[in-house]
Nucleic acid binder design. Structure first.
Lengths: 211, 211
DNA sequence: AAGTCCCTCTGAACAACGTTTACTAATAGA
DNA sequence: TCTATTAGTAAACGTTGTTCAGAGGGACTT
């Protein structure tokens, strides 16, 4: 069965060649401005060939979308090992921000594209996204058990923290923070995240630093 | 000169009829899925007519974009009158969230669309956006003068607060928070915002409530 | 070795898109 | 009444996502 193996391998290779080219083009010109024909030209096949590997243009987007979540989840697995829940939660938030800053194309694809996407998210295997969210909620709950963010429901606390970092990253990526000097934006974003952490998740030593 | 007045009035009416129809269609199907031809059909004119009133499809988007900022800015003017800077800043943040929850179509247009937009933002009259941002920075600075968020630069504090509320709103609007029950999402978002305010901008009476 | 099957790939076509152009019809000012 | 200007349009252009009938060539069976 070596030959069927080879065929499978070739199929997978073609698939990832398409994804690779698509990602590069999306990053350069944006999803809207990349046509199937351009992707086809880049991989040196006819446009129709792409439809043998992906149902439609959205399916390519969704595959990259999933790759991005897998990447993010992999990063989080490292931080998940931190024993102290406060340090762990801080690690998760900072890791999330760094992911957004380092992989803006993925981030853009994952969190800021279209309204039609949710249909796909519900039907398809949205595993990595849900897993990442569960890890966040669990860590938030542990922090609350240690006395942090006591007057807030776990859901609201998780949404607030996630939203805060997500929002900071989004403003930079969608260039809504253009009033800040371009070369300082990343550092200001890190400082902003630190501020939120220091007020919401003070280390014991910081206890007196509030407000 | 009554007749030139009438002509001007008719021109303005046509313009706002196009905008009105476009906004309704965008809200229903999303910007990408609305064609010039569909807008033309809705106003019962030929597609080419639209190009007598707007340079291209993006210009329609930008006009709505500006309308949205004007709306947001009008809301903020009410809150700007609050004397106490802490109460004022809280009012601004909560007003921003309510705007996002009440006018998700505008919000989507204003903050979550495309990368190509920035070109327009820089060249055209982006007045309302900048004005709103200046008001935020000024209020943050006043809060810092009163002892809040002392260990953070004003830029980072402003970005953090704005980003936090923006992020919470974005996750709801782009349906990334679908793990939360749909009918509770708005309230959880409000609770999350309150949590951030209570930790970052405590009223004197809340001073002991942290962490 | 020949014949059959299947599977990958493609050219050509389709409908819909944003936009431009050349034109018509109507109105305003002389 | 004649002319200039304007609002509106039909038709076309090039491009888009997508489909489909068919070509070509390896892989199995005999």
């Amino acid at each position: 069965m070596a030959i069927v193996d080879r065929k499978l391998r070739e199929k997978a290779e073609m698939r990832s060649r398409i994804l690779e080219s698509a990602k590069a083009l999306f990053a350069e010109d944006g999803f809207q401005n990349v046509s199937i024909r351009k992707i086809a030209e880049k991989i040196e096949y006819s446009p129709a060939t792409i439809y043998l590997y992906f149902q439609d243009k959205d399916a390519i987007l969704f595959a990259l979308h999933n790759e991005g979540f897998r990447d993010l989840f992999t990063r989080q697995k490292h931080q998940a090992k931190i024993a102290d829940p406060v340090a762990r939660l801080r690690g998760l938030l900072e890791g999330y921000l760094e992911f957004a800053l380092q992989e803006p194309e993925y981030y853009d694809l994952m969190f800021m594209l279209f309204t039609p996407l949710p249909k796909i998210i519900k039907t398809a295997e949205w595993r990595y996204g849900r897993r990442a969210y569960r890890m966040l909620v669990k860590t938030v709950a542990e922090c609350q058990a240690k006395g942090h963010m006591m007057n807030t429901s776990t859901d609201a606390a998780a949404l607030g923290l996630w939203g805060a970092v997500h929002g900071i990253a989004s403003l930079l990526i969608r260039q809504r923070a253009s009033m800040l000097p371009a070369d300082k934006q990343a550092d200001i974003a890190r400082e902003a995240t630190l501020m939120l952490e220091n007020h919401l998740l003070p280390f014991p030593a910081d206890a007196g630093l509030h407000s």
